[in-house]
């Protein structure tokens, strides 16, 4: 699949070399349209400029060997520097992070302690909270109790507050 296109490219480069050997109007015109490569730098048929008259990368063909080596050494240094930087950031931030905070809003009942849960972890069910005249129905992500929290199954992916759901005690 890739080989096919590679062959195709070779073919097209071949054609351009042939064309460049004998000056043809089309190449003349198009190189005039773009910013115009410096004469004598690029070998015939070599890629001169990108599609847009500006190349994202420097022209390899027209570059002195010394300059190329110096640039590649710089690139190597930058790679090592960025690698070290990313690792340092990771270690620094990773050692400081305490996980995601899960707070409990007992909605009128007794307090439950805040928990710090790692991403993807489960919340430990807090000690039962009490509210006179009410029966605890469970904990929920929403204050109205529409999304009950399953302490065995549900995992934490962001800091959240769990709300106690109460039902009036008939007795």
């Amino acid at each position: 699949m890739i080989n096919q296109s590679a062959e195709y490219l070779k073919e097209s480069e071949q054609i351009s070399k042939e064309q460049a050997a004998e000056p043809v109007k089309t190449t003349e015109q198009s190189s005039g349209q773009t910013a115009g490569p410096k004469p004598g730098n690029a070998s015939p048929g070599a890629r001169r400029y990108g599609l847009f008259g500006v190349s994202a990368y420097p022209e390899r063909q027209g570059m002195e060997e010394e300059q190329r080596q110096s640039m590649s050494r710089w690139a190597g240094g930058v790679i090592l520097f960025l690698m070290a930087g990313v690792m340092a950031l990771l270690l620094m931030a990773g050692s400081g992070s305490k996980g995601l905070t899960v707070t409990f809003d007992s909605q009128g009942g007794s307090e439950a302690a805040v928990q710090s849960v790692p991403f993807g972890g489960t919340v430990e069910e807090p000690d039962p909270v009490a509210r006179p005249g009410y029966v605890m129905k469970g904990w929920s992500v929403t204050p109205d109790g529409s999304q009950p929290w399953d302490f065995d199954q549900d995992t934490v992916t962001e800091a959240l507050t769990l709300y106690a759901v109460w039902e009036a005690d008939p007795g």
């Binding site: 296109s5 195709y8 490219l9 097209s12 054609i15 351009s16 064309q19 043809v24 001169r48 599609l51």
Partner: peptide
């Protein structure tokens, strides 16, 4: 179209000529 895309990306002059 896919092959033309690679040809244009690699060398627009050559692609145009071919």
């Amino acid at each position: 179209f896919g092959k033309n895309m690679f040809a244009v990306g690699s060398n627009p002059e050559a692609a145009k000529v071919s």
